[in-house]
Design a protein around this nucleic acid. Sequence first.
RNA 1: GCGCCUGUAGCUCAGCUGGAUAGAGCAUCGGCCUUCGAAGCCGAGGGCUGGGGGUUCGAGUCCCUCCGGGCGCGCCA
Length: 594
Amino acid sequence: MSDSVRTTVREILRQAVLGAHAGGQLGEVPDQMPLERTKRPEHGDYATNMALGLAKAAGKPPRDLAEAIAKQLRLLGGSDLAEVAVAGPGFVNIRLSDAFWQRRLLAIRAAGKAWGRGRAKPERLCVEYLSANPTGPLHFAHGRHAAVGDSLTRLLRFAGHDVVREFYLNDAGNQVAALALSVWTRYMEAARAADATVPAVVFPENGYRGDYVRGIGRELLARDGPRWVGTEPPADIEPVRRFAIERCLAMIRATLERFGVDFDVWQSERDLHENGEVKATLEVLDKAGFIDRRDNAVWLRTTALWGDEKDRVVVKSDGLPTYLLADIAYHRKKLSRGFDSLCDIWGADHHGHIPRMQAALKALGAAPDRLSVILIQMVSLLRDGKPVPMGKREGEFVTLDAVVDEVGRDATRFFYLMRRHDTPLEFDLELAKRQSMDNPVYYAQYAHARCASLLRRAATLQAPSMPLDEELARGLSLPEEIAILRRLSDFPDLLSDAAAAREPHRLVQYIQELAAEFQSYYTRLQKVHGDSILPQKRQRVGDWHATWDWKRTAARLAWVEAIRQVLEIALSLVGVSAPSEMKRAEAGEEVEGL
RNA sequence: GCGCCUGUAGCUCAGCUGGAUAGAGCAUCGGCCUUCGAAGCCGAGGGCUGGGGGUUCGAGUCCCUCCGGGCGCGCCA
């Protein structure tokens, strides 16, 4: 049986539909088998609306068709289908038996860490994200890209795909030139501070004013001495540029490392130019007939190719290639590496770039749908309910490091993934930092720690050993227990849906729901059912060890371990740790505010 | 002006390929600790899903339109 309950039920449904069709009761057999999880328990576990879709063509009332399908389902379903009912305008509702859900526990435990791992048709995917100018430290908005990209690639890999994570390094062009000039100017200042005969220079208008640039300038002086001193930027500024990029890249790598984000490939834009790949790409586009030369520049005919608003320049009138051309070369390179599809994660402010790139892909002879672009909306930081001011002018932006310093890596990653990527995110620093039940990160981690704690305690009780089998699993008979089994069983379908939709935030959603359901159960078991998983202290009197229901306890512990396991898997997919105990930070340990 | 995203409870947001009575957290109010971890649980109030039209058996979801936000419309990247 598949890990996906949905697949299992769909297969039964397919047979039932074929059966009803053979009996001449359906007009035609639909190719798709719509099946959805119900929202209300009265509607069972799964529902299909097929009869509603077939009614018109069949010329019969939908409820009649639903009855025909339901009848077949009852014949085929066996004991796993506890109830098949026709409801509403013509839904067929299917309820699976408690025994079915109890048996899922065996599958979940057998799978262990691999529960939910996808096995169907792996694709070769290339996910490019976070690509940035190496002109300074990553700022907090980059954090969302890093969190989404990293979690998405973890999810896709877990879903069974072969994924390469790429960082496109925009180390060519005006931005890094401005950086190099800025670094050189700060270098001159440092040199002048040590030696008053060094001439003063004016800081460039569009220079990078962050403090880190001063640091790099000083490092350059320490490494190279006065070699680059002069009244004008040196003609050969290349070594300065290389040094500046190297230093910035080192900062970026360090930030990513502590954020738990890793890449397989770092593609340098500069290399694409130097290796002739940019030039070669232009030739390919030209041969394909999509290049115009006019107004002293070279244009890609994106209007004709993809209905772009206007054609785009790929080589400027000064003879230099544009960013677009290099990016096309990069995508051409990726295409040639044999990926089934490419996924780019961009800032929403780059959406205008999409039609150009689609046009370029078409010009290169690739199906435009081989590229999908995920746009990430803005992030605003809140403190005390008010936006944290961003003074971009003086380079005083809030870095990702500063956010991680303040609220911690787990909370940062969790918060970046709480919202769908295409809605703006308000990042509440106070909430993220709070060590209380308001904070969704701790809430989820606490649920995991509670499971771990239960299992730890159980180990000390010298309970009789009882292997998990179908009979034992029947001990999970409370409605709350069945409900959680259902949710654990849904996990594989959730993962494949989230991976297919490229929406890692659904994991966070799921984590919160599972955590809440378990916490609720935990309290209710005692308050409402007057029961507990393990014997409590006051129950451990007299001959308690001999009379305690160890069988039920064993079933519940196996189930708690399943919950813990799924929480751990889900948390690891969002890059958040699953602690086995919660420790409060000491008072006074708080990091300085931003 | 054109294009993309967006508008759901006081606030922040879920809502899977259109499904049945639109959910959660925070905030507010009221309960639950002789604790298998209260970093927890239970309950209450709170909605014309921005307005209007359309498609459909059925719309928060699709289409049109209007209104309100965000972003983009360089031979910048």
